[in-house]
Structure formats: C-alpha cells, structure tokens
C-alpha cells in the first residue's frame, strides 16, 4: 500500500473528524425558544377535562353520602302483588 493511500480503517477513523460542532450558544438559543413555545392545545384541554371530571366526581360522592334521604333512589321500588311471575319457560 502506498503511503498516501487510505485504508478502510483509516477512512472510518478520519470520518469521526467530519463532525461539525454546533456553536457555543446553540443549546441556549433552543431552550430560549422552547421556553416561549405555547403548550399544545390538546394538553390544556385534557387537563381542563380532568379537573372538571374530578369536580363532578366529588359532587356526586358528596350527594350520595350526605344528600337528603329519599332525594335519590337508593333502592328499587317494592314489588306489587300483581307482579307477574315469569318462569324460564315463559308461563
């Protein structure tokens, strides 16, 4: 092999030197832009929906625990004497 010839290993070794370094301020500029980037709209909507669902669940639990007796159906209506008795055969 001639002195000035490139071996595959040397090509792979030299290839590392083709890396282009970013400028010193690069990361800072990106993070500055990121800090003013608005939040994705659907994330905000998702959070609002979660808050509303939490509030609704709390209200429902409160009503079930402390609501006026009889204001909410807590048991099925009593069966009447005329209630049909249906067998699996349909009689």
């Amino acid at each position: 092999m001639r002195d000035d010839e490139f071996s595959p290993d040397e090509i792979l070794h030299l290839a590392k030197g083709l890396r282009v370094a970013p400028s010193a301020e690069f990361s800072k500029r990106v993070m500055e832009r990121v800090s003013v980037e608005p939040r994705p709209i659907w994330t905000s909507i998702g959070r609002m929906a979660a808050v509303y669902a939490g509030v609704a669940a709390s209200v429902l639990i409160w009503v079930l625990l402390f609501g006026r007796p009889g204001s909410l159906p807590t048991r099925p209506p009593p069966a009447t004497a005329e209630a049909p008795f249906i067998t699996p055969s349909g009689r």
Binding site: L18, R19, V20, A21, P22, F26, S27, V30, M31, V34
Partner: peptide, 14 residues
C-alpha cells in the same frame, strides 16, 4: 428536554 438537546445537537448540525 435540555439533556436531549445536549445529546443530539451535534448529530443534527452534522
């Protein structure tokens, strides 16, 4: 995210 920027800034610029 800043850590990711640190990892990949060189790759992207190159």
């Amino acid at each position: 995210f800043e850590a990711l920027v640190g990892r990949y800034r060189g790759t992207l610029v190159t």
